[in-house]
């Protein structure tokens, strides 16, 4: 097991629409530790995707704080090393948070290899040869090295999602965020993607996974969060959540999905 120090501290996170008429997130507080595989479950519309997307500020929270690596990234301005207030550079923090989307979001006008090397070259300033070597090694890991020159359209859903995962890994993130990574896949392709995620978890990668795959939550997760109506109603180990649920909403939810 990896070290257990805290990586992201989320405090009282709220996301309101229409001046509070819709509460997508209604005060979520949670600590994410290094090495955690945190699985977020809950009925649709419960705010789990909003929660995940808030973590790298794809959604701008209404209030609350997200401290990532010691910096509150919800603040527009932060103190720099000399104690001066400077504009927060969110791009810098986003590089360290890999994200995998339900609909893959590969760049259709680029080859797989270019998809993978774009950010390392343009954002991190890696040289092209090194970035490509690294990308090929990552592709090899997910069994897609021979498809490096292909375009996303030529790949199956499962292959696309595996590419999306290693594209995020190419930036060497400190945490990987998965937003329903298998929900858009044909059933026979779900396994290959979960397999990659499982490997990643065993290597000690910190992961936050929003999913409907209860098997994955139970088998791979070390913490499970249950959300409903924008609130975090219950959290615990997979054994507790699935074996001994407390909250009536959770019991109701589990009776429907298991």
């Amino acid at each position: 097991m990896a070290t257990r120090d805290s990586l992201i501290q989320v405090t009282d996170l709220k996301k309101y629409y229409n001046k509070g008429a819709i509460k997508a997130l209604d005060g979520v507080t949670v600590d994410i530790n290094r090495g955690d595989v945190m699985v977020v479950i809950g009925p649709s519309g419960s705010g789990k995707s909003t929660f995940l997307r808030s973590l790298n500020l794809l959604e701008e929270p209404t209030s609350g704080s997200i401290v990532f690596d010691g910096v509150d990234i919800t603040k527009k301005k932060v103190k720099n090393a000399e104690g001066k207030m400077v504009k927060l550079d969110i791009d810098q923090h986003r590089q360290k948070m890999g994200m995998v989307f339900q609909h893959f979001n590969l760049f259709p006008h680029m080859t797989i290899l270019d998809n993978m090397t774009l950010a390392p070259i343009k954002v991190k300033g890696m040289d092209k040869a090194a970035a490509e070597e690294k990308a090929l090694a990552l592709l090899d890991r997910v069994g897609l090295k021979d498809r490096a020159g292909a375009y996303p359209i030529q790949l199956s859903g499962g292959q696309k999602q595996r590419v999306a995962i290693v594209r995020a890994l190419a930036m060497e993130p400190e945490v990987m965020l998965f937003d329903e990574p298998t929900s858009a896949l044909d059933p026979e392709m779900v396994g290959e993607v979960l397999e990659v995620m499982k490997e990643l978890a065993h290597e000690g990668m910190t992961m936050v996974v929003v999913t409907h795959e209860m098997g994955f939550a139970r088998e791979v997760g070390n913490r499970v969060l249950f959300m409903a109506d924008g609130q975090l109603l219950e959290q615990g180990s997979p054994e507790d959540i699935f074996g001994n649920p407390q909250h009536p909403r959770l019991k109701d939810f589990l009776s429907k999905v298991l």
């Binding site: 790298n56 794809l58 791009d91 810098q92 986003r94 590089q95 948070m97 890999g98 994200m99 989307f101 609909h103 979001n105 590969l106 760049f107 259709p108 006008h109 774009l118 950010a119 343009k122 954002v123 991190k124 999306a164 594209r167 995020a168 930036m171």
Partner: peptide, 24 residues
């Protein structure tokens, strides 16, 4: 989703425009 993917990789808004959105 293209912009979201680009920004989540750490690309700036300008880089997103230049490498992802404009070519498409």
């Amino acid at each position: 989703g293209q912009t979201e993917a680009a920004r989540s990789l750490g690309l700036t808004q300008t880089q997103n425009m230049r490498y992802i959105i404009l070519p498409q």
